[in-house]
């Protein structure tokens, strides 16, 4: 794999949150068609990586570069990143009472279509698309008319994140702990949703604590993030090894 082919190329990324240095020289290459898992102990910077890529205010990049589909990602506003096909699945999806779920889906889809020079989605076509994706996520249609994540259980919020992802069909999905707080049935549904997105022209970055998600979504590469940088990369076997041995041995090696 050459760097030119990589859909996402992160080099020596340094991010501070407030006065705290969190990412400290992180480098990562993700190519189209690949699924990468980022694992690591609490506080290692996994969520910071996800938020930095999505452009969350307060996550200040102090060094390094991020290239996404040949563009300088860091120079784009958060909405422009999303419009170009970057999707962030939140660990804690936000409730927005008063803003209708279906409206958000449609507005987000149209914003991405506008960026690609396409007309607004036809109402009937949109409804059929949403229904099809809801079936995958085993969601009831009544969710559509409710406020965004309003009164949803933790599992419903996670399903809703994946539903949004399936409707938007992003080129790069960064999913921050898509499995946290899910029972085993909900985990399978979420994993099915993520697998439904896999395609040769798309990439997925999964941020997770546990091997169990990777039983259902097979990653091409597994990385260990600790102390703000990738300290080990490997294949799916690395996740199993981490499950068995924990992170300490790697931290000692890295030190």
């Amino acid at each position: 794999m050459t760097e030119i082919q990589a859909m996402l190329s992160i080099k020596d990324l340094r991010t501070t949150v407030g006065s705290r240095k969190v990412l400290d020289g992180l480098s990562l290459q993700v190519s189209a068609g690949e699924v990468h898992a980022i694992m690591g102990p609490n506080g290692s910077g996994k969520s910071t990586l996800a938020f930095t890529l999505a452009g969350r205010p307060g996550y200040d990049v102090t060094g390094g570069s991020v290239s996404y589909c040949g563009e300088d990602l860091l120079s784009l506003e958060p909405e422009a990143r999303a419009q170009r096909g970057l999707f962030l699945g939140f660990q804690y999806p936000v409730e927005i009472p008063g803003v209708n779920n279906v409206y958000l889906l449609k507005a987000a889809l149209n914003a991405a279509r506008k960026q690609r020079g396409l007309p607004e989605v036809d109402a009937l076509e949109f409804l059929m698309l949403v229904r099809e994706k809801m079936k995958i996520m085993q969601m009831d249609e009544s969710f559509l008319s409710r406020g965004v994540n309003e009164g949803f259980s933790g599992g419903e919020k996670k399903r809703n994140e994946i539903l949004q992802m399936l409707v938007l069909e992003p080129s790069l999905a960064v999913l921050d702990e898509a499995d946290s707080g899910l029972d085993i049935d909900a985990l399978k549904v979420v994993a099915n949703g993520v697998n439904a997105l896999r395609a040769p022209d798309r990439a997925i970055v999964l941020v997770t604590h546990y091997q169990r998600l990777l039983d259902y979504i097979k990653p091409d590469r597994v990385h260990v993030l600790a102390c703000g940088k990738i300290i080990r990369s490997g294949g799916p076997e690395l996740a199993r090894e981490l499950e068995a041995r924990g992170y300490d041995w790697l931290l000692i090696e890295a030190a």
Partner: peptide, 13 residues
């Protein structure tokens, strides 16, 4: 948080 959530879905500010 709400604002960023909407921006992260591509909705203009």
């Amino acid at each position: 948080d709400m604002l960023f959530y909407l921006l992260s879905r591509g909705i203009p500010e």
